[in-house]
């Protein structure tokens, strides 16, 4: 019996040692937090960086843009992240939070674009819609034709626009917590919404009402929240040929044997079209760096030059192969210079 008590006492002792064995150590590894959309690209760069240099592979966390920027702005120093990825631009409120916590030297680097596609199984016909059709099909309230709004009455795509097929509107998309959903509402719904002159006029006179009308997605079952996992949506599209899904371009790219992207405003969601800016639903991707950490944390400079490099983010770079849409030559030069000179963020 004594043996057993000693054993237990040993366990207790070990756990105390484990508790005590923490101390702040100087960090020799870059820490990155932020958007799950930028995650696949950021990790690809981190992996190459770790392989091609003697530095440790950076740790990249997938926390979402908002959560990442919050961590990023929690202070400067060893125990805070060096870089935050974001699938949208940093907000003024976040810059303020950063400043309050002593982070005033934020460097903004735009890395490329991400197209958002409306896609269906390629056993069905390809859809050719306008942003206005998307708005009318998916908004909670739509114009009634007399300068007022009514709850969305449309059941099939044909109800929305007579040239569209007689198929029930059934769109699987991300939940409100997702950045993809925000971008979809802002670019696709608002884009279609603005094509009504009186609503466009509303933007100047009553902005909250404009936003409420243009950004609110219907809740009567035509738009189905399918969770954050885009692979799941792709699988559901294969199972249900009449349904459409909303997700990032890289998932269309990877599953082009089973799904097809809808043509929006006459432009197909193809690599070149998104890159040239013709495809209407695409957003910019960014990362933010603490300039004070460059030099403090080993390898930061080298990591930035690995990222802001045509080998990574160029048209033939490995990020393009991962589904990121590269910026134009001029833009790449501009942002690479900003990354190199650590130009402070200009809102």
């Amino acid at each position: 019996m004594n043996k057993k008590t000693t054993f237990l006492a040993l366990l207790m002792g070990l756990s105390v040692v484990a508790l005590g064995a923490t101390g702040a150590m100087a960090r020799d590894q870059i820490r990155i937090v932020g958007s799950s959309t930028v995650f696949p690209f950021s990790t690809a760069v981190a992996e190459r960086f770790g392989r091609n240099t003697d530095f440790k592979t950076p740790v990249v966390e997938s926390t979402g843009s908002g959560g990442g920027l919050k961590l990023f702005c929690s202070g400067a120093g060893q125990d805070t992240p060096d870089i935050a990825n974001a699938s949208r631009r940093i907000k003024a409120s976040e810059v303020e939070l950063c400043a309050q916590n002593g982070v005033a030297d934020i460097v903004e680097v735009k890395i490329g674009y991400d197209g958002i596609v409306l896609a269906n199984s390629n056993s069905s016909a390809q859809l050719d819609v306008s942003l206005r059709d998307i708005f009318l099909a998916l908004a909670k309230n739509v114009p009634d034709g007399h300068g007022a709004t009514m709850p969305n009455p449309y059941i099939t795509w044909q109800d929305v626009n007579a040239v569209l097929p007689d198929v029930k509107i059934e769109v699987l998309g991300p939940p409100p917590t997702s950045g993809t959903r925000d971008a979809f509402a802002e670019l696709a719904l608002e884009g279609g919404c603005k094509t009504f002159d009186w609503i466009a006029a509303l933007k100047g006179s009553d902005k909250p009402a404009f936003k409420a009308l243009c950004h609110t997605i219907r809740e009567d079952g035509a738009y189905i929240e399918a969770g954050e996992n885009d692979n799941l949506i792709v699988q559901k599209l294969n199972a249900n040929p009449s349904a459409f899904g909303v997700f990032g371009f890289s998932f269309l790219d990877q599953n082009s044997d089973s799904i097809q992207g809808s043509i929006v405003n006459g432009v197909a969601p193809e690599f070149e079209e998104i890159s040239s800016g013709n495809y209407p639903i695409s957003r910019s991707l960014y990362f933010y760096v603490k300039a004070s950490h460059v030099g403090d944390i080993t390898g930061m400079e080298e990591f930035l030059s690995e990222f802001a490099n045509d080998r990574a983010w160029g048209p033939d770079g490995y990020l393009a192969d991962k589904g990121m849409i590269p910026m134009s030559d001029a833009e790449r030069i501009e942002w690479a210079t900003r990354a190199e000179n650590l130009t402070n963020l200009n809102m």
Partner: peptide
């Protein structure tokens, strides 16, 4: 919830 390439060698 992070991308970790290196195999961790300690509890820290």
């Amino acid at each position: 919830v992070a991308f970790i390439v290196d195999v961790p060698n300690s509890i820290l």
